[in-house]
Design a protein around this nucleic acid. Structure first.
Lengths: 109, 109
DNA sequence: TTCTATCCATAGATAGTCTATATATAGGGC
DNA sequence: GCCCTATATATAGACTATCTATGGATAGAA
């Protein structure tokens, strides 16, 4: 592994959904929120973010709406659908089980 | 996500290295060990396992030796090199930081 | 007017896992 | 003797997700 990855593959959708559980947010804001909450450890590149948002839209887990930001810029605000909220629960639960399983292997027995 | 993945992408190398920190083991045995330690939650498919072992060999993190098993079958036993032991430490540390960062995002702030 | 930060988006490269397939054999059950 | 299962290694090709690189646009500060 020549370079440290910015994200753990497979967790981006979950992180985006989580960010949207608080309030609707535009793409750029989502990326900033994840970066900030992780103390700059996680960085969401645009090339990962926007394809991910397209995936989520296609699955019906988020919906989007063009609006103006507080700073007078046009932006696409994403918000969770009911299905998206459910999906977040699923992914969170699956993630926790996965981490626990990896933890068991790492502890050895 | 139509199907639950058997592994978290990016963690397989670490899990293999961890398994080998205890004692040398052949590929099939490594897969069984990971499955068993994780209470059957993690399944390492052959198509993931052997390419991963090739990667680890190429990087010089493990070395391999053909031997007979206790049950009289030929098998390729892998063991950690010094570099591999160091690499495991790195990956473990990186993994823990990553999990902690994701945890901070999931907790919200 | 130039620069930075904000904002969106896609194309192509890369990496890692999974599916499917191939090969081989020890040992148990019939 | 023969079949089946578990053991054991390995690769090719598909698939998915991320990253790199690029393109465009504009508000506001310097």
């Amino acid at each position: 592994m020549p370079k440290k990855p910015e994200l753990m593959p497979g967790t981006l959708d979950m992180l985006i959904l989580k960010t949207l559980t608080r309030h609707p947010q535009h793409g750029y804001g989502i990326a900033l929120a994840i970066k900030r909450l992780s103390d700059d450890f996680l960085t969401v590149e645009e090339g990962s973010l926007y394809p991910a948002l397209q995936r989520l839209l296609l699955q019906g887990w988020v919906k989007a709406e063009w609006k103006m930001t507080e700073t007078n810029r046009r932006a696409r605000y994403y918000s969770l659908t009911a299905a998206g909220r459910k999906q977040f629960g699923l992914e969170l639960s699956q993630f926790e089980k996965m981490i626990a399983a990896i933890g068991r292997v790492l502890e050895g027995a």
